[in-house]
Design a protein around this nucleic acid. Structure first.
Lengths: 170, 170
DNA sequence: GCGTTGTACCTCAGTAGAGAGATACCCTCT
DNA sequence: AGAGGGTATCTCTCTACTGAGGTACAACGC
């Protein structure tokens, strides 16, 4: 039975597994008042030291507006700060404050354990196998032509029907 | 040393693979003006017929407010409708309208192909292997004690017949 | 019957972040 | 020196929800 729904099934179990594990990760992060994105920024800075905002952005896969928002929030909490870049005045670094470093250092080990627990349903051999397959899958999917190519496709459903507020602007 | 960061690495590649494949799925759905959640509802109703809102909610894993919102949106687009439940006046069914059924029927095959393309980096044998591992991982992660419990009451042996719950497919 | 507990749905405020566009700057080429 | 194009960040609007809380009904025990 060469299952021609194999790709769909793979996508379903992939999405569900990721969601299930993510729930554990996020629950752990929220115990410290951090959103997923905030934690990702802290973790990146913790492991790599100060980075340009654009580097962090690419690492954690958020939009340009998103990284501004996240660094703003962390700065507001006193966990991170911006530092000017000496060689490029457009750019700036994000860096952990003392408090930010203290926080991430104190919670990271437990976080790792929470993740370990979440994935403990697989043996180490299975984990290695899964890493290999998922790495291959992730890389190949990421390399496929940018989404939205091909045909615009027939627009369905009015879509212009929703009341659009006429906001006066500046 | 046997890599004690294996769980973390698994989580990273899992999240990245899921995000990469999801981008393709979402891009395809958006060509028809549907968000991920809207598409998930249509697909569920298409495959299972009319369902109670609470059933759809559990199937696609959104909050109670979320399912109300999604059905409202689909109703506003004329793709789905609510129907009273004869035996329980609190409850109501969601069902596809003619137009909704026509739409999902017309786009579903191409959607399957988009997914197939997104996961085409793996051979069929690898896909099957991945499905097996991810199913095991997803089920075990979903069964772990609810997130947020500081002291997980030792409810260890929940149900030994672990296989069940969370039927796949969406 | 009546009280209690559980369930299905809705309401509403709030949030994380997307994405388009603007601004300021850098770099190269002439 | 100046034009042109590329890049880093910020601003702003908008979306797709979440989660808490409320209402109406259901279901059970007495």
């Amino acid at each position: 039975m060469t299952d021609n729904e194999l790709p769909l099934k793979l996508w379903v179990v992939l999405a569900r597994a990721a969601a299930a594990v993510r729930r554990h990760a996020v629950a752990d992060q929220e115990r410290h008042g951090l959103s997923e994105g905030e934690f990702a920024v802290l973790e990146a800075l913790y492991h790599k030291g100060p980075m340009l905002l654009v580097e962090v952005q690419r690492k954690i896969l958020v939009s340009s507006g998103g990284i501004t928002y996240l660094v703003d929030r962390l700065a507001g909490k006193g966990l991170a700060e911006r530092r000017p870049c000496a060689t490029d005045r457009r750019a700036s670094y994000a860096a952990l404050t003392k408090e930010g470093e203290r926080l991430i250092r104190s919670i990271f080990p437990a976080h790792g354990q929470a993740i370990a627990r979440a994935v403990s349903g697989l043996t180490d051999a299975e984990k290695r196998q899964a890493v290999k397959l998922l790495r291959k899958l992730g890389l190949s999917a990421a390399e496929l032509s940018a989404p939205g190519d091909a045909e615009p496709a027939p627009r369905v459903a009015s879509e212009s029907g929703s009341a659009r507020q006429a906001s006066e602007a500046r």
